[in-house]
Design a protein around this nucleic acid. Sequence first.
DNA 1: AAGACGGGGGT
DNA 2: ACCCCAGTCTT
Length: 374
Amino acid sequence: MLDFSDKDSGGFCKRTPEFIQPLRRALTGWYTANRRTLPWRGTRDPYHIWASEIMLQQTQVNTVIAYYERFIRAFPDIRALADADIQAVLKLWEGLGYYSRARNFHKAAKLVMARRGGAVPDDWDFFLSLPGVGDYIASAVQSIAFGKPEAVVDGNVKRVLARIFEIHAPVNGASSYDIFKETARTLLDPLDPGSFNQAVMELGALICRPRSPLCPDCPASQWCLASASGRVADFPVKIKKPPVPHHHLAIGVVEKKGKLLIVLRPETGLLGGLWEFPGGRINPDETPEAACFRILTESTGIHVSIRSYLTCIRHAYTHFKITADVYICDWASGRVRLNGPARHLWVTPDALHHYPFPKSNHKFMPQLMEAISK
DNA sequence: AAGACGGGGGT
DNA sequence: ACCCCAGTCTT
């Protein structure tokens, strides 16, 4: 339980617990009147709520909506997801990012089928043990779907709490999670935990935004320490991360008798389970053309001749950026012997859309189709 | 405790 | 160009 006399517990010290009830009422009242209509609101299906929460990790609501609709249509219940091919699951996840979410959700569905006959667990320990279910997902699903008194802590909640209570702990510091969790637990409305959790997150998304928050419209402003002191812009406190490295890649689209060579990335790690055109880092003092030839030999065992330069694409990941030169090549000799990729396939250009590809590959796909058709 | 893990949207 | 997002897993 929170120590209300503790100076570091985030501002409760300056108040008595009496303010909590009116603050709760203000938040839930605001949520009832202002909440957005979203596809996963209004369903009571725990599996649908679970799916939405997974997609919403590190991903904004507007991005998720269309993916959610397609996913639920394809896999309306746990059994449908558990029975699906992982490639079908990844195809529906294509472009959403953080593909381990899809792989873990698929594994979790199989586990729930095997252990619970397809019923989403309403017991904390087993649900939390499932792949892809961490403290946030567990709290969100248990509170929203089952009414359990579990407080969620996500980016929105941390920002809202940091401002209301002037919490100095950095929101991206691993050691400060417990402070926000305890604060959220204390504030949580036990009468309707699911709605209260969503109220705080919705407030963070619509009013208590990262930049240019709408304090005059905020139902919590009269209890907000940062607003009172004019320091809303100083919260939340964040540790700055160093700039990310930039890599130069060469990618080779190899054609052989009208078919193109694609390779499957290993199941784990970056873009795991997605298909791509072979590529890799260009070494120092190496021309992109030489790198393209070398990379194809090393990773697929085949020899090629470079037919033409297609284009250059740039793409940013979370922890590095890439610039890639893309070449169209002709198979010259050799049988495919993979070193790195899990599988390979020769496919006709019109079949490419059946396979999940990373965004970086999609960036040159239209130009590729244009060039190949000539 | 720190780093890996995508991609889009806002400023 | 930089920041942020309904975080989790691995080391």
